[in-house]
Simulated assay, not measured.
Amino acid sequence: MPSIVGNIKIISVGSSGIVHIGDAVQLSPESTSKTFAGSGSFNTGDFITTNSAVNATNTLDPDVADSTQSTVGNKGVI
């Protein structure tokens, strides 16, 4: 379905990131990772103000194998 996209601002794209504007049937990641982030993380914008008191992020991960999304068969063809 066609759509109108307004102004966008892309600061950076990682090595396995996807930027797609428009219609898509399926977007499949080629890699997965586990990320730990604390209070006030992952804020985007031009004028961010974050006020966080004392905080801690639990990064204990006793699993030998994580149940992250499988990427088998997701290698794209260019």
Rank of each mutant, 00 (worst) to 15 (best):
D66N: 15
E30I: 14
I21H: 02
S33C: 12
P62G: 07
P29E: 03
I10T: 11
L60N: 13
S67D: 11
N74P: 00
G22L: 03
N51A: 08
A65H: 03
P62C: 05
T59L: 07
N43I: 04
G45S: 04
D23H: 07
S70L: 09
N51Y: 02
D61G: 04
S15C: 00
V77I: 15
G22F: 03
V5K: 14
S28R: 14
I11R: 14
L27A: 10
V19F: 11
A24Q: 04
G22E: 04
E30P: 00
F36V: 09
G17W: 05
K34H: 02
T44G: 06
S28Q: 14
Q69V: 15
D23E: 12
A53K: 11
S41A: 15
Q26V: 13
T50P: 00
P29N: 06
I48H: 02
S52H: 05
D66C: 03
V13Q: 08
P2K: 12
S41N: 11
T35A: 04
I78S: 13
S52I: 10
I78R: 10
T50Y: 02
F42S: 10
D23T: 11
G14Y: 04
G40Q: 03
T44I: 07
S3G: 15
N74S: 08
T71Y: 01
D63F: 10
S15D: 13
I8W: 02
S3I: 14
S31P: 00
N55K: 08
I21Y: 01
S41L: 00
P2L: 07
G40I: 03
I78G: 09
S70H: 05
D61A: 12
T57A: 07
G76M: 06
V72M: 05
S33P: 00
L60E: 08
N55G: 08
V5G: 09
